[in-house]
């Protein structure tokens, strides 16, 4: 499945298009910010990049002919994030994606529930994953996107969304259960 046509940019839109943009696209600002925040691992950078992406979306809005506005916007946000990462943190994108999975001792649901109970720890574990694993998890588990939407947003074939999620989940479990347990400082 190919991505959305982002259309030709236009610098100025009229009031009607603006109202349509506010109705269709702006309600997904939280989702846009959330994706940027987990791709860039920083709230400050995400504010700038989300703002830039929103503006790009506005300029490309004429090319959006209905359909899934959230997926359309998130695709633009994701592209803007990757451009930003290439420029500012190229090393990050070199993190391996297709790592061979070694057989892992499987984790028990109880262990996982305990390890994941700490928000900080869960967030840190998610941040240790390569961006391409992080994004499918954020889209699926935090934003509730379908495989079709994930494929459109991340430009991966729909047939590989399932295996990408499988690997991402395994990586997250490993990061979560192998991370040193750092609890709040104990008070005497």
């Amino acid at each position: 499945m190919s991505g959305f046509d982002q259309g030709r940019g236009s610098d100025v839109l009229d009031v009607e298009e603006r109202a349509r943009f506010e109705q269709l696209v702006l309600p997904h600002l939280d989702a846009a910010f959330n994706l940027a925040r987990w791709l860039l691992k920083s709230r400050e950078d995400s504010e700038d990049v989300t703002q830039e992406a929103m503006l790009r979306a506005f300029r490309f809005f004429r090319g959006f002919h209905g359909g899934d506005a959230r997926a359309w916007l998130l695709q633009i946000v994701r592209n803007t994030c990757y451009t930003w990462l290439e420029k500012n943190r190229p090393m990050e994108l070199m993190m391996e994606f297709d790592e061979e999975l070694h057989p892992q001792p499987s984790v028990s649901p109880e262990t996982l529930a305990i390890a994941g109970d700490n928000r900080e720890r869960l967030g840190r574990a998610l941040e240790t994953l390569p961006p391409r694993f992080r994004e499918v998890l954020v889209l699926r588990e935090l934003e509730g996107c379908s495989y079709k939407e994930i494929a459109a947003i991340t430009a991966i074939p729909i047939g590989t969304v399932m295996s990408a999620l499988a690997r991402a989940r395994q990586r997250l479990q490993r990061a979560l259960t192998q991370a040193p347990v750092q609890e709040a400082p104990r008070e005497l």
Binding site: L26, D30, F33, R43, G116, R119, L122, E141, Q173
Partner: peptide, 30 residues
Amino acid sequence: TEESLRSVLQRSGLCESAPISLRKKIRAEL
């Protein structure tokens, strides 16, 4: 295990909302 991971993620509060300042900036840009 996967169901447990899912419920951990969905209960996590990891979802972050756009700050009000960002909304204002975007509105000004629009």
